[in-house]
Structure formats: structure tokens, C-alpha cells
Design a protein around this nucleic acid. Structure first.
Lengths: 253, 253
DNA sequence: TAGTGGTCTAGACCACAGC
DNA sequence: CTGTGGTCTAGACCACTAT
């Protein structure tokens, strides 16, 4: 029931009550909540009010609604842990790059599709790569899946001058991935910088990543540098925040 | 106007149309949108439908609603850039710790409030610190502000054995901050690990950080290790995703 | 005081899931 | 077929902002 004198909106009281019941284990993970019409009865408010309360919990990522089935408590997602060691030369030597290294370490079935195109660099990419805006870049647009589920989007851009006549311009970059091909072509990787942020997904990203409710995405922009400091690649990654944790470690200085 | 035959819900059509007008510059950043009642007229739908469309944009962080004033296009936020150099010994030598180093670098007026308490470590913290659950930890609960605006929450926990009789148990830890005091006490910092993720804020966090609409938070769990590998501190930070970008750089290996 | 967003009602019909 | 969530209407009243 709802306290009409408290000044707190009814839908917030309902949301708070359901949130508390969920965290107290009254509705365990995976469990179905009472139907909206049952909640209308038990809280004594109208259905739009119940729906607004449920929307609060959906935006918080606590529940998901399934059309025709009900409202379910969202189980915690399996977390992919990424650490910088995924980019080590040693990992490249063993297999085909960062994503496959993660798959091997965590035992999921990886698959990915790649589209390759050639474009003129926009201002932002040109700044990262220290080339002129409009210079030609090779764009590798990747969708990565784990057990069929899309888990990562990545758009990698490299100056075309570094990729011509290499397998980087092919769908299959071969063992060790694009970084191994850069090294083959006389561009030894010297260092990486990753810029990490988070935001709400665009509608396109939400569709591609099958994001329900209020799940944010983690964005990582990685820049790979040659050992003389020349930028070789900028890679924009988008990951569902509920399925990833990224770790970095370093020695104090 | 809305196409009733397309199968796309009316509120999504309205949201998509407004989104497009905003990104096309028809409504520039900071601009007020037409009022809900005006939108009712121009799209030919009911007010709840308009409100649902506006809620989509609010969840995406594109607009904010201000009671009694209107709906406004959200300007991009000033970004705080954090890099690992904020934790260098050299930065500690210059001032009073990571947050003040950021303030000095970026020229905002920093302020913070600290609450100190002593607790028994929970399982998660005990795992990080490699101590027994229930062992006493010193908890430093900090709220950090830039020009008066809350920009960061941080809860730092250290085994009490390392903090007894040090300024870490005081509100003011002195020059160089808690890490400098640990080093004074014979615990030289050897390395750091940071685990980065993102999620929607809890209601409490949304209030504390004054988050409107669908702004996610970036979470960073930092563990500081002594040079012999002993964990010294675990620090859970919560930052508004629209105001922060965190960077890490390292040499390829 | 007028205009704004915030909340809420009591319905209606549709689309999907599952028996 | 029944029950579920998804969408939508046409109002109503409240609280806040600005003039």
C-alpha cells in the first residue's frame, strides 16, 4: 500500500518497495514479479502508476520485462574480465589477437564478423593518428560474439600507408591479428594508451548489443604507438557495462 | 506528425524525430524544446505519449527537464581526465594526493569532506586485502567537489594494522595524502591495480552526485600493493560518467 | 497569474506467450 | 483461449518558475 500523505510520489514508493523486496531476496534472481494488474491491486494505484514504478527498476537494470511472459528479476551477468595482458606480444604469439585471447582464457565460443572499408580520416581520428584530416585510413569494423551473443563492437582505424599490401586489409588478418601484421611490416608496437569512459548506448548500439533497459556501455578508445612514438592505430570499442570489467595494473613510480 | 500505419510506436517516432532535430542543430545545446503541450499539438498525440517520448531522451541523457521551466538540450559536460600519473610519487611530493593533483592540473577549486570509521571487513574487501573477514579496517568515506559540485565519491579501506597511530585515521592526512603516510610508516607502495566498470547509479548515488536522467557512473576499484605484494588499500570510487574519462598507458611487452 | 513539468486516474485495444 | 506486458487516450490536479 501507498502512503498518500508522505509527499513521496506513489510510483517511487512502489519502486522503492519492490527494490527492497528484491534485494532482501523476497524475489530471487530470475523470479517473476507479480503481474502489473496484481500490483495494481496490492498497492491500490492505477496501472500507469505501476508501469512507471517498474520503468524505474528497468532503467536501473534491476528487472527486465518480457512481453506476454512477465517481469523478471535480472540475474547478474557473467563478467568478462579484460586486462592489459590481452595485448601482450606473448598472447599474440599464441593465437589470433586480443578477443580470441579472452575467449581462450574464459572458455567461450568466439565468433566475429568484420567489414573493411577505406575512408578519409575525420578530425578526431586524424588528431589521434597525427595525420591530416582527409588522409586515407583503413577501417576494420568488427562485431564480436561469445556463444552467439554480441558482446563487443570495435572500430579500428589505421593510416592506409601502414596497411597497404598487408593482411590488415583482409578479413582474416592471420595469426596474432593486426598487431602481428604491423610488426611484420616493420612497425613494432611500442606502447598503448586506453581512454575509458561510459555512457548510455545509442539506439543502434542497444539493438546490436541486445541491451535491455538501462544498461550503459563502457567505451574504450585504444591508441597503439610504434616504439618511436608514431601512432599506428586508433580502436574505438563499445562493450555492455553489465558484462565487462576492465583492469589495469602498473608499478608505482 | 506521426505515422500510425508504420507499426513503430508513436512515442518512439516522436523521440526519434526530436533526437534527429537535436543532432541536426535544430535545437542547439542549452536550448529549450517546445513545451509538452505544444508537442501534443504538433505531433497530434496525447500528453502521456509525449512524456514517454521525452523520457526516452532523458534516459539517453540528451535532454533534461526542469520543473516549471521547460525541457532543455543538455550541453556536453566538462570532462575531467584522469591518468595514472595522478598516483605518481612525484605528484604526492608536490601536494596532497590524487584528487588535489587533478584539481591543480585542471584549475578547479577542490573541496572534500571525509568521514572516518572503523569496521569489520566484509568478504569482498577481505579478499582484496588478503585478511580475514571480520578483521578491523579503517574506512575513509570521501565526497569530493569541484567548484562546489560533487564530482566523485570514494570509499577507501585499509587494514587497521597499517593505519594505527598514523594521520590516515585523521580527517587531514597531511601532505601527499594517505599513500605518503603509508610510506612514512614503512609501507612503500609497489604497484596499483584498477578495475574499471560502469553501471546505473543507485538512488543514493544519483542524489549525492546530482545526476539527472540516464547518466551512468564509472566505478573504479583500486588496490594498492606494497612492493612485496602485500595489499595495503582498496578504494572504491564512483564517478559521473558524463564528467570523467580515465586513461591508462603502458609499454607493449 | 500564466505557463511549465510532475503525478495520477480509469479506462481501452493491441501483440505476444503458453496452455 | 487466458494472461501477460506494450501502447494510447482525455482528461485532472499539483508544484515549481517567472513575470
Amino acid at each position: 500500500m501507498v502512503d498518500r500523505t508522505s509527499g513521496v510520489p506513489a510510483f517511487r514508493q512502489v519502486a522503492a518497495d519492490l527494490r527492497e523486496k528484491i534485494s532482501a531476496g523476497h524475489y530471487p534472481a530470475g523470479e517473476r514479479l507479480p503481474s502489473e494488474r496484481e500490483l495494481v491491486e496490492s498497492y491500490g494505484v492505477s496501472r500507469p502508476t505501476i508501469r512507471e514504478a517498474v520503468n524505474v527498476l528497468r532503467t536501473e537494470g534491476i528487472v527486465t520485462a518480457e512481453h506476454g511472459r512477465g517481469i523478471f528479476v535480472r540475474p547478474p551477468s557473467a563478467i568478462h574480465r579484460l586486462s592489459r595482458s590481452r595485448l601482450s606480444r606473448e598472447a599474440r604469439g599464441r593465437n589470433q589477437g586480443a578477443f580470441l585471447a579472452d575467449a581462450a582464457a574464459r572458455g567461450f565460443a568466439p565468433s566475429s564478423s568484420v567489414k573493411i572499408r577505406f575512408e578519409e580520416a575525420d578530425q578526431r581520428v586524424a588528431d589521434y593518428l597525427r595525420i591530416d584530416p582527409g588522409a586515407e585510413v583503413t577501417v576494420r569494423d568488427r562485431v564480436m560474439r561469445a556463444n552467439g551473443l554480441v558482446v563487443q563492437l570495435a572500430v579500428s582505424q589505421l593510416p592506409r600507408a601502414f596497411t597497404r599490401d598487408t593482411a590488415i586489409e583482409q578479413v582474416d588478418t592471420g595469426p596474432g591479428g593486426a598487431y602481428a601484421r604491423l610488426e611484420d611490416a616493420g612497425h613494432p608496437i611500442g606502447s598503448f594508451v586506453e581512454h575509458v569512459g561510459a555512457r548510455m548506448p545509442t539506439p543502434d548500439e542497444a539493438t546490436a548489443l541486445q541491451l535491455t533497459g538501462g544498461t550503459p556501455v563502457v567505451t574504450i578508445t585504444r591508441v597503439a604507438y610504434q616504439d618511436d612514438g608514431t601512432p599506428l592505430e586508433v580502436n574505438d570499442m563499445v562493450l555492455p557495462a553489465d558484462r565487462y570489467e576492465v583492469s589495469y595494473e602498473w608499478a608505482a613510480d
